[in-house]
Amino acid sequence: MNVLRLQRISLRFGGVRALDDLSFTVEPGTVHALIGPNGAGKSSCFNVISGHYHPDDGSVSFGDEDITQLSPHQIARRGVGRAFQNIALSAHETVLDNLMVARHRLTRSGFVATSLGLPRVRHEERRHRERVMEIARFVGLGEKFDRPAGALAYGDRKRVELARALSSEPELLLLDEPAAGMPTHEKWEIAHLVVSVRDALGISVLLVEHDMPMVMAIADRVTVLDFGRRIADGTPTEVQRSPEVIAAYLGSSPGPEEPENAAARRTRSETS
């Protein structure tokens, strides 16, 4: 199992520092949460890890390999999967096709073999379809394989997004707000799901999530960002006690409130 290590990452857009000297490590087999106020650099951080942005400084390594300058597909091939926050599915294609595309790195059939309809193409297709259906059931999609992804309810589309990332059989899964916009009971279903991704499938998870109760409940470790900088890193309890975190979430003056509640309140006011 490989460790993901970010070392002194800096990323600038024009004059804006999106990420500033950011370092943290995701240990294998853990759920690692990345939290912070809006605009703290969480999505930029994901984009650096998955190769959509290349940092101006610093390095990302996965296992023994430096993956800083690799392109998204090369990083995906090394076992880093990603679920997008804003549901990046092919709306007109079926759920099954949307999931099957994530098998790309695990399958071989190219243009020529597929055109010729070689038997190995059909075998490959059948084998992987079965596995993908298993994953769809695992995330609670039931049997909605033939429906166009765009026709599903919001919560189900979020699940397809998650199932697709899982379908690439990643070693490390980047989850960008998998429960955003869901009603509370569904949020907790997703939380359970994230835990079972770690426990049953043995996949490490790097999670961006605004729902603090959920983060505190399921994360093994938390890294807190503010203005692109790391302001805290530790277990949920350690992070909750950190004065910088309290300050970042409440403005300059730490109030009498418990930080967890404060964070939760902030989330509520953001979503409303």
């Binding site: 190769g51 597909h73 995906a76 999967g81 997008f84 599915l89 709306a91 595309v101 790309h104 790195r105």
Partner: peptide, 12 residues
């Protein structure tokens, strides 16, 4: 539909 997602799914 989404070139960025295609990249992250391993499509060159």
């Amino acid at each position: 539909d989404n070139p960025a997602a295609a990249g992250s799914m391993g499509v060159p």
